[in-house]
Design a protein around this nucleic acid. Structure first.
Lengths: 254, 254
DNA sequence: GTAAATGGTATTTTTTTGGTATTGTATAGA
DNA sequence: TCTATACAATACCAAAAAAATACCATTTAC
């Protein structure tokens, strides 16, 4: 719903924003309003024209301020409809998704994606898990395995191991593991991925419906907290004939 | 970001600079600010007019101080935009290397790496090259192919295509393609990689000394200039049994 | 289907910022 | 003293960013 303009764009807020170009001040004002909760998730911003009139600047200036926030994922624009406060997807999930979210990848390729859970359970850690996640022998680990399916074709097998401390009950995870961790204030800030090619063994090949020996793309990911502590360890095996892994890198520039 | 003037050009700093002409004092002050980190890489200096006013000298004097630092490569000026603290060059190659430099990767793993050139030449572009590099039919393209070898074991085949405009003579490339491009002031700022798994065909398998059908890691990379123009297109095929591709990602921070 | 409301874009104008030519002034050396 | 040079100030030029204007395209309500 449309907010009260004066609540957000009061002259004090605009002028008090400190230094810099108009659109920077406006951007700061908006950012603040979202952060403080004057604008809540899903809320519509007032129309650009109204904001412009009230703030006594041109509409393009308003747009430039909004542009930045849209780029940051704080706001979402819908042509002909309005501008809205984005659902606060955490940076963590967004960035990790960029490289690995199966669902988003498939959507981008025009396919419908779903999952079939193969396993959810709590276990005593394997030697590998103890090493990688830094667990003691008397702790627990949550394991989640699923089959990723796109357009009714099985495309990947995914095994995730999470320290029991961060996820005591794996059954609560329905779609996104990262969303669930986020709920618990567990926010990895760094991840390392190892990508390699392998010929498929019988069990995996059967699940994915390809001949034994077919090429598979193996992706192992470990994600870490700011403290350096490992949170999660995921091994995925993609069908080589049906999946490309795309990474984009920006160089220098700052 | 514009720095706080008083933090850098405080009267004490200016007078304390010792002896000499005004512009020398100013230069020392600026140099110090950069060295100490009060001004960081990429930071914008305040406008010359502001500095002049604050330091109570003429703008030309400020310019003269800045001139020297620009000549030394410490600062960079952009007409109409501002003056910025320079960034060390050769970032390009370093950053691209992070993901793909075979030699460095091998060194990190304690292996000695070398290459064998399979081909260097100038050709009329293939349809793929025309599409990807945005070339006309009457232009030329440089192709470079080599076999990457680690500890005397062939590990990868690499085919690079560069628009003839950026590299008219491929024979000048001896080790690093990016170093050669850098020499010509061609600096890609963005790259997209596509990674996939494939079963090897006979020709490639033979070169790499593995059985036909063995899993291979295929990496295709396109790198772009700031303008969006594609510079180079590289297809690599790694032995799946002997090479892991590692990517590290930093998330959010905010 | 039409009209109103909303975001999208191309073009122009204004402001900001570095670039340059000209002039004045003090200082060192012949 | 006279002159060449380094230093500094003034005034104006040019490129880039910021802002405003005018018009286009999509969605939604009726």
């Amino acid at each position: 719903m449309t907010e009260d303009l004066s609540a957000i764009f009061s002259p004090e807020r605009l002028s008090g924003g400190g230094t810099g170009p108009l659109y920077v001040k406006l951007r700061r004002t908006l950012e603040e309003a979202v952060k403080v909760g004057r604008l809540k998730q899903g809320d519509a911003l007032p129309p650009e024209r109204d904001i412009a009139e009230f703030a006594a600047v041109s509409r393009v200036t308003v747009r430039k301020a909004i542009d930045d926030l849209v780029a940051e994922g704080i706001l979402v624009r819908r042509h002909g409809s309005g501008t809205f406060v984005a659902k606060p997807v955490s940076k963590v999930e967004q960035r990790l998704s960029q490289l690995t979210s199966f669902t988003e990848d498939m959507a981008r390729r025009g396919m419908t994606a779903r999952s079939e859970w193969l396993h959810k359970g709590i276990h005593t850690p394997s030697p590998d898990e103890m090493m990688i996640l830094g667990l003691a022998a008397d702790t627990k680990v949550s394991r989640l395995s699923r089959l990723r399916i796109a357009d009714d074709q099985p495309l990947a097998i995914e095994h995730a191991s999470v320290s029991g401390e961060f996820l005591p009950d794996p059954s609560v995870v329905t779609t996104s593991l990262y969303a669930e961790l986020e709920k618990r204030q567990v926010r990895p800030v760094r991840a390392v991925q190892r990508i390699s090619a392998t010929n498929m063994k019988e069990a995996d090949a059967e699940l994915l419906g390809v001949p034994v020996g077919a090429a598979g793309l193996s992706i192992e990911r470990i994600s870490y907290l700011g403290s350096g502590r490992a949170v999660e360890f995921t091994r995925s095996l993609y069908r080589g004939d049906a999946y490309d892994f795309v990474a984009e890198l920006t160089i220098g520039a700052n």
